[in-house]
Design a protein around this nucleic acid. Structure first.
Length: 478
RNA sequence: CGGGGUGUAGCGCAGUCGGCCAGCGCGCCGCGUUUGGGACGCGGAGGUCGGCGGUUCAAGUCCGCCCACCCCGACCA
């Protein structure tokens, strides 16, 4: 841990991940098992994620609200699958103010129930629909094994909850939000994802249909990076969310829910990071450009710092940090900001002052190859273009890596071999929960999703050999 | 919950057969020299040895119980 270099990914991927999260100061372990503290740098990244998502939610007519952290235990029990899915991981409050509660409260693991309860009060008529509310908050799920960002007892997320008049509208909303997640992942985070449907086994407890965006991490394992659920009328019936339609007939609403969590930070880390550390996509990076001044003598310092100030002012439209610490050397700073994933570094030294230039170093291209010397004139344009280039090339690189690790095995033997050495399998699949369970048992791989983008036609199911009309992705997952 | 491991300075660790002042590296503080890829010298600060109990003239060290955390499995955004 005190070694200057991170454990290389090839040596121990999860060790690399843990060290990176701690040393980049994204998060730290809290004094409670399985809980994390999101440090300012990590939270700033999360805020940028929030902004990117929130603006998309607002643009599609959603509004934000806040619902309670505590939910009456009985609420959860109203939806059968929901309670079965969540009861093993609930935190339950039985005492309040020193007095035993009449009814235990659970700390929300998700808010379908309490929001459903409120919707039943608020919705009377078709004129009240649709209801399109999102909430930014935290939830608690008492997981057995935890990893920073990827799975903690408490995590931060947004959960959207909508109610609609028809099944079609519900499905359209569900899919719209999946599209938004996809757009966010690809265009803001440069994380290529495969949008698809979850199998019956993998779907959300209480949903009719679940959709997911699946991303491939640097070790080829899959990560569910966001989900969108069509809840049908399950929760509407459980909570009597009803409305009168145009014909004065009482109808149950059709509801949806969709969420994306701080887990996504894990996705960014494991999609772009290298052995040197984190690599952040410019659009989400808390610091897009770090300026490192370099000088030997006092007289150099003055001239260099004047140039630094000028450059910083020129780059006012970007998130810029000047690292003017005197107690560490430039070389130390280079390594530290690379560890922390800042996309672009500007070095300004006496030579640059003399030449009216700066040195630029791209985080995504290590070493001399990623370094260039450019004039100070018109620097904002240069930097803007370069950040766009970096953003684009991160996506290209990640997409290439993903595609190189997706295979189409001819038979189940080959399937097992691929899963075993790491990689995704794209195969014909005839839906069957038992076979899915057997595959999981035999290979540890799960059905990640049935992609929306289907080739059409028919083929033989990879496991049963039966005729199948859809293809699916299988992989080991986080 | 099952298996494995670890608790000694902020972090990483050493501490032999129980022995008198508990140490090393990094980090931290001060001063000076340094600064274009992880600088160096000198001087300092910092400890309920996870907790409780026991054995003993004497416990970081031996014994018992407890607690916490980490890793590997079964569950999951």
């Amino acid at each position: 841990m005190n070694d200057k270099k991170l454990t290389p990914r090839s040596e121990n991927y999860s060790e690399w991940y843990n060290q990176l999260v701690l040393r980049a100061e994204l998060a730290d372990y809290a004094p409670v098992r399985g809980c994390m503290v999101v440090r300012p740098y990590g939270w700033s990244l999360w805020e940028n994620i929030q902004d990117a998502l929130d603006s998309r939610f607002k643009a599609t007519g959603h509004v934000n609200a806040a619902f309670p952290l505590f939910i009456p235990m009985s609420f959860l029990e109203k939806e059968k699958e929901h309670v079965e899915g969540f009861s093993p991981e609930l935190a339950v409050v039985t005492i309040g103010g020193g007095v035993e509660l009449e009814e235990p409260l659970i700390v929300r693991p998700t808010s379908e129930t309490i929001i459903g309860y409120m919707y039943s009060k608020w919705i009377q008529s078709y004129r009240d629909l649709p209801v399109l509310i999102n909430q930014w908050g935290n939830v608690v799920r008492w997981e057995m094994r935890t990893r920073l960002f990827l799975r903690t007892l408490e995590f931060y997320w947004q959960e959207g909850h909508t109610a609609h008049a028809t099944a079609e509208e519900g499905e359209i909303e569900t899919r719209q939000m999946l599209d938004i997640y996809t757009d966010f992942a690809v265009n803001e985070a440069a994380v290529p994802v495969i949008p698809g449907r979850k199998s019956e086994t993998e779907k959300f407890a209480g949903a009719v249909r679940s959709y997911t965006i699946e991303a491939m991490m640097g070790d080829t394992k899959a990560l569910q990076a966001g989900t969108s659920h069509n809840l049908g009328q399950n929760f509407a019936k459980a909570f009597e969310i009803q409305y009168l339609d145009e014909n004065n007939t009482l109808q149950y609403c059709w509801t949806t829910s969709w969420g994306l969590s701080t887990r996504f930070i894990g996705a960014i880390i494991m999609t772009h990071g290298d052995d040197q550390g984190l690599i952040l996509p410019p659009r989400l990076a808390p610091i897009q450009v770090v300026i490192v001044p370099i000088f030997r003598k006092d007289e150099e310092q003055e001239a260099v710092m004047a140039a630094v100030d000028k450059v910083k002012a020129e780059l006012a439209d970007f998130r810029v940090k000047v690292d003017d610490r005197m107690e560490v050397t430039p070389g130390f700073k280079f390594n530290e900001w690379e560890l922390r994933g800042v996309p672009l570094r500007i070095e300004i030294g006496p030579k640059d002052v003399a030449n009216h230039s700066v040195a630029l170093a791209r985080r995504d291209i290590p070493g001399r190859e990623g370094k260039s010397f450019v004039p100070q004139a018109n620097l904002a344009q240069t930097v803007g273009d370069l950040l766009e280039t970096i953003q684009a090339s991160l996506l290209v690189k990640a997409t290439q890596f993903r595609d190189e690790n997706i295979f189409e095995p001819k038979d189940y033997e080959e399937f097992k071999a691929i899963i075993n050495r790491g990689g995704w399998c794209y195969v014909w699949w005839k839906p069957n929960a038992e076979n899915e369970a057997k595959i999981k048992e035999e290979t540890k791989a799960t059905l990640r999703c049935i992609p929306l983008d289907q080739p059409g036609g028919k083929g033989q199911c990879i496991y049963s050999g039966e005729e199948a009309t859809e293809k699916a992705y299988f992989a080991k997952a986080y």
